[in-house]
Every structure is written in C-alpha cells, then in structure tokens.
Amino acid sequence: MQGPLGLYNYWIVIVLMMTGFYIVIARPNLIKKIVGLFVFQTSVFIFFITMAKVEDGTAPIIQEGVNLYSNPLPHVLILTAIVVSLATTALGLALVVRIRESYGTINEDDIHVQDEAS
C-alpha cells in the first residue's frame, strides 16, 4: 500500500500505546497503573513487529522454495522485551500487594493523604 495510507497501521498502534500511557498517568488505582504499563508495553511490541513485516514474506524459518522472509531481528528484540514486561508486572504487583497490606488501600490519592498525615 503506497502513500500515507501505508502508515495506518502505525497510527492505530500509536493510539494503542497512548491508551496504555493514559491509564498509567491518569488512574490513581495502582493495579490499573500496572495494567496501563502492560498495555503500553504490549503496544510498543506491536510497533516493533509491524516494522518487521515484509509484504508477501513468511515467518523467518528457512524453508526450501521460499526466499522472502520477514525480518527476524525485531522478533528477537521483542521476545526479550516481553520477558522484561513480565518481570515489571510481577514486581509491580508484588509491591501493590505489600502496599495494600500496610496502607489498607491501593488508591494513590488515599495513600497520599495517609503519607501527608504522618
């Protein structure tokens, strides 16, 4: 697809990224923030995988009779990034659980009030 329309994929991906980013910075609920980070990061993965696609190419597993493959490098990078995302989610949620145990709430505004009071 030629012309600016050939970029529609990227534009939708940017909307997805910004949805996640918005959840992170606008929502006071800590679990929601972690969900936002997850959505933000997953959307960035889609961005990378989109750039790796080659029109009419196939998955980068070498086969007889095929000579057009999609780019394997972004796939590798994103495999690593998915793991980083899991690590962040796990640690973030563990922190949320501990915060709930010591503050009794997972709402950022309420936590702020308690911190100001002490």
């Binding site: 990224m17 992170v24 923030k33 960035v44 750039m51 490098l73 962040t88 973030g92 503050y103």
Partner: peptide, 29 residues
C-alpha cells in the same frame, strides 16, 4: 512503609522512561 510507595512510584516512572527509550531505539533501527 513509604519505601514501598517510593519503589512503586520509581517503578512506574522508570518503566515509562525505559519504554520511551525502547520506542526511540525502535525508530532508529
């Protein structure tokens, strides 16, 4: 207990920072 919220705040901001870097590196690539 404020160590927990400090760490959480750092985690959120740090991850946003890292994701921005990742987007930048992706564009460079």
């Amino acid at each position: 207990r404020r160590a927990l919220t400090a760490a959480f705040q750092y985690l959120v901001m740090g991850t946003i920072g890292a994701t921005f870097i990742l987007i930048g590196v992706g564009m460079l690539y």
